[in-house]
Computed example of a mutant assay.
Amino acid sequence: MNSHNATLADGLRHILCIGGGPAGLYFALLMKARRPELKITVVERNRPFDTFGWGVVLSDQTLANLAEADAESAALIGAAFNHWDDIEVFFKGRSVRSGGHGFCGIGRKRLLNILQERCLALSVDLVFETDATDDQALAAHYDADLVIASDGLNSRIRQRYADTYQPDIDLRRCRFVWLGTKKMFDAFTFAFEQTEHGWFQAHAYQFDGDTSTFIVETPEEVWKAHGLDQMEQPEAIAFCEKLFAPYLDGNPLISNAQHLRGSANWIRFPRVVCKHWTHRVDIGGKTVPVVLMGDAAHTAHFSI
């Protein structure tokens, strides 16, 4: 069966991805590579070079899976990765280091740009600075036969069709903050520090030639006991720098969320799972599946 007949057989002509993060972009490029006759559009509310967060970590096995799925983008991702094999844990004055794990770190912005460029090379349409306030109106505008809801952790689409998806969202008890530093870590580093009120953990890894992610996490009650809930960002960052000074070697911690006020950059991790991932809506006289993908469908804690 040729590609044109395949399109007619399954009724699929145009796919709309709402959300241009890694999940939406990667789905779009994989589908376009396999079904070049399809029209695929990715709609993203931010600009092409806007991003949030610091680095992204993948295992060697995941990188191998990417290479099998799309060798071109995998080669670019692999070339941009910082690779390490070791995990090092610091606890109560001791360090334990083990090797042979195989991890790769890459800047989130660089990862998105690689996926964007690969999408464009395959003739995926990328539409930026478009806030999808109404997925049905957007699907009608693009005459979509399939909608991929890759609109992230706080998915509006998942919320709109919650009766179908039946999400189970468990807001975990620890507070954490995403920071960065110019201190280079040669291992996936977990550092634990005890204070008079309880424990803090740092989760650190290098993701490019001169920057590391540095996540600080602590239970809610410890966070409040230290007054971090009342601190502005500079004061809270100074607290973390002092607490984890033995691991930073004089390097400051950096925030890329200066627009947030007070303690708003300290968040709690929501574990998201959904009973169903597909909802169907009638748009323009046809039934259109709306499929959750990425963090909209499920989340994985950053320590995994």
Rank of each mutant, 00 (worst) to 15 (best):
Q233W: 03
V89M: 11
D143W: 03
L58T: 08
C274R: 09
D134Y: 05
I18W: 01
L12M: 12
H14T: 15
H83P: 03
H14R: 15
A236D: 05
C17Y: 03
E117M: 07
Y247K: 09
A297Q: 09
E221Q: 11
R35D: 08
D135K: 11
Y26M: 13
D85G: 14
V216N: 01
K182A: 11
P246S: 12
V57Y: 00
V42K: 05
R94D: 02
D134L: 10
L126Y: 06
S73D: 02
A245E: 12
G78H: 08
Q194G: 07
P48N: 03
V272D: 01
F91G: 05
H14Y: 15
D135W: 10
G107L: 03
V177H: 05
R118L: 08
R118W: 06
E220G: 04
N5G: 11
V177M: 14
P289I: 03
G19L: 02
L58F: 14
F27V: 02
G262F: 15
K286Q: 12
S155G: 11
D131F: 10
G209C: 10
T189I: 13
F128L: 06
F103T: 00
I106G: 05
H101F: 01
L253F: 03
F188A: 07
G107I: 15
L112A: 08
L153K: 11
F90Q: 06
F302V: 00
F244Y: 09
L76T: 07
E217S: 01
P252H: 13
F214V: 06
F81L: 15
L260A: 11
A236G: 12
N5K: 13
D70E: 08
F49P: 00
A139S: 04
V291L: 12
M31S: 09
T164M: 06
R158N: 12
M31N: 07
R97Y: 05
F207E: 00
G78K: 13
H14P: 12
L12Y: 04
V288L: 06
A162E: 14
L112K: 13
D295L: 02
D229C: 06
M184Y: 07
V42S: 01
A300C: 10
F200S: 03
F239H: 10
L63F: 14
Y26T: 06
F207P: 00
Q258N: 12
V290Q: 01
L253R: 00
P252A: 10
A236F: 06
G180L: 10
G21V: 02
N113P: 03
A64E: 09
G107P: 14
D168M: 15
W199D: 02
G99Y: 03
K286M: 08
T41S: 11
D208C: 12
H141C: 14
D170P: 06
N5V: 14
G180D: 02
A245R: 15
V127K: 12
G11Y: 08
G93H: 03
A69Y: 13
H141W: 08
L29M: 11
E129N: 09
A245M: 13
F185K: 02
H197R: 15
F190V: 00
T278G: 11
A28N: 01
D186N: 15
F190H: 03
N46E: 11
T299I: 10
K242F: 11
A67M: 09
E68L: 10
P252R: 14
F188V: 04
Y165N: 08
Q206E: 06
T287S: 12
R34D: 04
D249E: 13
T181F: 13
